[in-house]
Design a protein around this nucleic acid. Structure first.
Lengths: 148, 148
DNA sequence: TATCGCTGTAATTAAAAAGATTACAACAAA
DNA sequence: TTTGTTGTAATCTTTTTAATTACAGCGATA
């Protein structure tokens, strides 16, 4: 599973909902205008975030709102919410698929490598777990407080 | 930079050279038969590993050999040798490219996220630094000693 | 209850990225 | 000088991702 832009789009989306949600109805078109992607991409993102219990989306009347404490949403949570299943076996690394089983190296390459690759991926994920969406809103404030 | 199979192919390649190098000439065709990819893919891999000072490749007569102590080659070294520059800006994460600068979120999303993404990538890379190719050969022996 | 704006989602197209493959010049040894 | 191999460019194929089109369904509201 290579890490696609779905992840950064989702983080961006949550921050837009947080930033504007109290003042106005935040629609997929509105978010799309900030992220600059097609609104359908945002709707799919909203769908994933909703399934993960992070937001509520009003069908019909429109508008998304955050329903989970941002202190309880980590970057890792967002990452799994939108990127889970984007690749069948969940690996960050692409493994060449058909090593020759008749060769002692080809036969065992998976066995000797897979664990280390999983460790590396877990290390990355643990780092994402350290950062909450709340942290990001605080950082955002630093940069926007002079603008408003 | 998503992590392509170049990385696992390169590790596989080094292990094949190590395993068979003393007994026979290890050509790109031979390695390709173990990895099961096109020989040209192996030649490109060999080219990168050679540029990184890990192996020597004999043009003309053919054959690759390891010239650096495997204890001094980490998975991270292999990773950078073959995957460096596979993506322009070196990021593991794909960032959506044109956030709207007129929006306070779009304007600052990079600033608040980039550091955390870089941290996550570094955590992954540090984990790869912990494993040497020598370690892998020892693991391989465990699985092959009953075969030979 | 008819309308309007918006969501949900399927289907299709386009674009990008990665490998595979073809081709062939250069090279080294026998 | 023949043979087997490397180095590398060029081209296709495949896969993946994102963009786009299309439209049914929903909910507020007039």
């Amino acid at each position: 599973m290579k890490i696609t832009s779905r992840f950064t789009v989702a983080v961006h989306t949550l921050l837009v909902i947080y930033t504007f949600g109290k003042e106005q109805k935040v629609t997929s078109d509105f978010i799309a205008a900030s992220v600059r992607v097609n609104p359908v991409v945002i709707r799919r993102t909203l769908s994933s975030l909703k399934a993960a219990g992070m937001i509520d989306v009003k069908a019909g009347s429109g508008g998304a709102s955050i329903v989970k404490d941002l202190k309880d949403i980590t970057l890792y949570d967002v990452y799994t919410a939108v990127d889970a299943g984007s690749d069948e076996q969940g690996g960050l690394f692409h493994f060449h698929e058909n090593p020759n089983p008749a060769c002692p190296v080809g036969k065992n390459i998976h066995t000797v490598l897979d664990g280390h690759l999983a460790d590396a991926q877990r290390a990355m994920e643990r780092e994402l777990e350290k950062v909450t969406l709340y942290d990001l809103t605080q950082d955002l404030k630093k940069f926007t407080k002079f603008v408003f």
